[in-house]
Amino acid sequence: MAKASGAGRAAGVREARRPEVRLPELRPYEGRDGGGLEPDGDYDGVGFEDLDLGGAEASGATFLDCGILRCGLDGAGLEKARVIDSVLDGVWGVGTRLAGAELRDVELRDARLGGTQLHGARLNRVLVRGGKADFLNLRQSRLTDVTFEGCVLVEPDFGGAALERVTFVDCVLRRAEFGRVTLKDVDLRGVTELDIATGVDRLAGAVISPAQLMDLAPAFAAQIGVRVEQPVRRRT
């Protein structure tokens, strides 16, 4: 595993722009008849605090200037939702469905997520800080100006995704899937544990550290068909 500290700036690598979220005074969420979220709902300046939103069906909903704080999202259906200028802090859940969603100017802090479905999603100016995500599905998604900071990603799947100006700072990437991914200005030097399961041949457009290069050397060699073996000692 490669060991590295924070990611500095390399010549020619553009850093991800971070969101600047300033939430207004939020009004407490009051579901219709005490119920949960609604499909195509419109939530503007709403605070969701300490709620169990598991199993909610809110595909196509819009969250603008919202705070979603310490809420459970187990199995929540948020396909094609729009989350804009919002903060998600301390949320948790397994199987949250966000396929085709748009996240723009969003901060996701200290989340505990498993099997989150974000395939086909669009992430623009998003900061993921702290927390852990297992089996994060980002296949065919588009990430622009996204920063992962101080988080652990276990078996994230970036297959077929397009990443531009994506920065990893003091993060762990375990068994990451990069098959058919497209990278531009992606800074991996701040990954403290870099473990790529597939797609090492797709790292063009990324920058890595010398230590990471040494750790990935066997995978690079295997990719081009080079065998690395100890020399045979011949008797004289």
Rank of each mutant, 00 (worst) to 15 (best):
F168T: 05
E155G: 07
E102S: 13
R109S: 02
V46W: 09
G90K: 08
A219L: 14
G120K: 12
F158A: 05
R17P: 05
A222M: 09
V21K: 01
I196L: 13
L138W: 06
A10T: 14
L183V: 10
L138E: 06
T236F: 11
G130K: 15
D145R: 13
G114M: 14
A16N: 08
A222C: 07
P156N: 04
G120N: 13
E107L: 13
E57P: 00
T236L: 14
L153D: 11
L51W: 09
D110G: 02
E177M: 06
S59Y: 06
Q223S: 14
V154R: 14
G190E: 12
A219M: 12
R180D: 15
T167C: 07
V87A: 01
A4W: 06
F158D: 04
G179Q: 13
S5W: 04
L88W: 03
V232F: 07
S5C: 00
E20W: 00
L113W: 15
E164C: 10
S86F: 03
R112S: 07
S86R: 02
G160C: 10
Q230E: 13
E15A: 15
E149P: 01
G45P: 08
V13E: 03
A10I: 12
L53R: 15
K132Q: 13
V146Q: 09
G95Q: 11
A206H: 02
Q230L: 13
A206F: 03
R104M: 12
P39N: 07
R27L: 14
L108C: 09
A99C: 05
L78T: 07
L163Q: 11
A10Q: 14
R165H: 11
L53Q: 09
G150H: 15
G67K: 04
Q117D: 06
P39W: 07
A219Y: 15
L136D: 01
Q223M: 09
D157A: 06
D85V: 00
D65V: 02
G72W: 01
G114P: 07
R129T: 10
Q230T: 11
V186A: 02
T147C: 12
V207K: 06
G47E: 01
A111W: 05
A162T: 04
Q230C: 10
G160E: 08
A10F: 11
E79C: 06
A99I: 02
Y29F: 12
I196H: 15
G225L: 03
F220Q: 11
T62W: 02
L203Y: 00
R174D: 06
Q140F: 13
D201A: 15
S86E: 02
G159T: 10
A58W: 02
A222G: 15
E229K: 08
P231V: 05
R22N: 07
G12D: 10
P231Y: 04
M214E: 14
P218E: 08
A99D: 00
K3F: 14
R165W: 12
G72R: 13
C71I: 02
Q223W: 08
E57A: 01
A10R: 03
F158V: 06
L216D: 06
V21T: 03
G114Y: 12
D33Q: 11
G55M: 03
L194S: 11
G45I: 04
